[in-house]
Design a protein around this nucleic acid. Structure first.
Lengths: 212, 212
DNA sequence: CAAGGGACTGAACGTGCGTTTAGCATTCTG
DNA sequence: CAGAATGCTAAACGCACGTTCAGTCCCTTG
């Protein structure tokens, strides 16, 4: 045993074990006996300390959310995901945990997304003011879009990794995705603005139809 | 009762009920008695026809995958998601089902992603040849990125919808996201190519360090 | 040292749910 | 018409798992 069994209190050991299990297998599939085994305690003690499986989840949510939100505030870069992934295993686990929370539509997941979007929006606005970012018709939605793109790399990691021909999600996959992402963010995808103009025209037309 | 209880065979009714439940609640949370109730049959009949819950899932996977892949081939547009979402409830349900399959990392989910990526890559290459799409250093990865963005809108719909200030994921949210997406795909996000150049420089430097 | 309380455990309880079983109609088949 | 096969059901079985219970150990406090 290495870092896991430091001189943590049993409560903390259980919490950390639960975070690891929830992140890897999801809330439903995880059973308390497995968590207890990982933490090196009995299943009954888990209940003794946390009351129920659901309350254990809430404790984990709060803990992970706190750590990640603190981290997100400190970062101050549009590439939040890279920041998380570059760091030692510590954050990868917690980010994966939050991804699960988002998929399962838990309150903590929602607050995490809110934080990322808010942070991202602030960065975009600062960049626009400074001139390094192009103005957008809907900055909030653009922030959502960037957060979306980053998080999606995690929610759908396994199939996408295979679609790229690699076997495991790791740094090399992330690097492979970084360049196209930057290309997209720098030049866009389309060679001209015909699709955009067509779409805005179509939208305006539909608006007029709506009025009549 | 409306469309659901057409003159379908009981097997098909069970399959459709299961698809609806799996899409809404996920595989684990769904129990066979609920599926049976929706289909208007007994729980035992589900087993009688499909053998087990797991085999029922596989049957659903195959069915949904078949329908969607056929549809994806017919579409021939880079905006696969819009194509699916615009259509009557029919496809929305099946797409949501596949999103669950992707989250749960099921074989059918993988094949669905593969199909979308392949289709998307073909469209990109055609666009590049024709001149409407900018060349990319890694077309495959770019295809993955576009698929990612579309699907992410669904996997994380609930929190993202709330982050935009709406309450339910519907056409208006999709429309709100469409414009920024097109802006991004047309002009990019950054005002100049400094971030891209910096990243490629950093990457080349790390490659040289790797060699020595 | 006695008393009390918290950390902790093994065993048991209860229940939800996938699956099995036995049996009832109904419809082919010879 | 006998009987095999098929579609279907109610009831029961059994296991996995969250939770409870009764009790032990140990550390504090008076």
């Amino acid at each position: 045993m290495c870092s896991a069994h430091a001189d943590l209190t049993a409560q903390a050991k259980i919490r950390d074990a639960a975070i690891a299990h929830f992140a890897r297998d999801g809330f439903q599939k995880t059973n308390l006996r497995a968590v207890a085994a990982t933490a090196g305690v009995s299943a009954a003690l888990v209940i003794h300390h946390f009351g129920s499986k659901e309350k254990l989840r809430i404790a984990c949510d709060d803990h992970v959310l706190g750590v990640l939100v603190r981290r997100a505030h400190e970062a101050g870069t549009p590439n939040l995901l890279g920041e998380f992934m570059a760091d030692p295993e510590e954050y990868q686990l917690k980010v994966r945990y939050m991804v699960r929370a988002i998929e399962e539509d838990t309150p903590a997941g929602g607050r995490f997304v809110d934080t990322l979007v808010a942070e991202s929006e602030a960065i975009l606005r600062a960049g626009i003011a400074e001139g390094s970012v192009r103005p957008s018709s809907d900055v909030r939605a653009m922030a959502v879009l960037t957060v979306l793109t980053s998080l999606a790399m995690l929610t759908m990691a396994p199939p996408l990794t295979r679609a790229l021909g690699h076997d495991g999600f790791g740094p090399e996959v992330l690097r492979r995705m970084t360049l196209p992402t930057l290309e997209l963010f720098t030049h866009g995808l389309y060679a001209d603005d015909a699709p955009l103009k067509a779409a805005t025209a179509a939208w305006e037309a539909s608006q007029e139809n709506r009025d009549e």
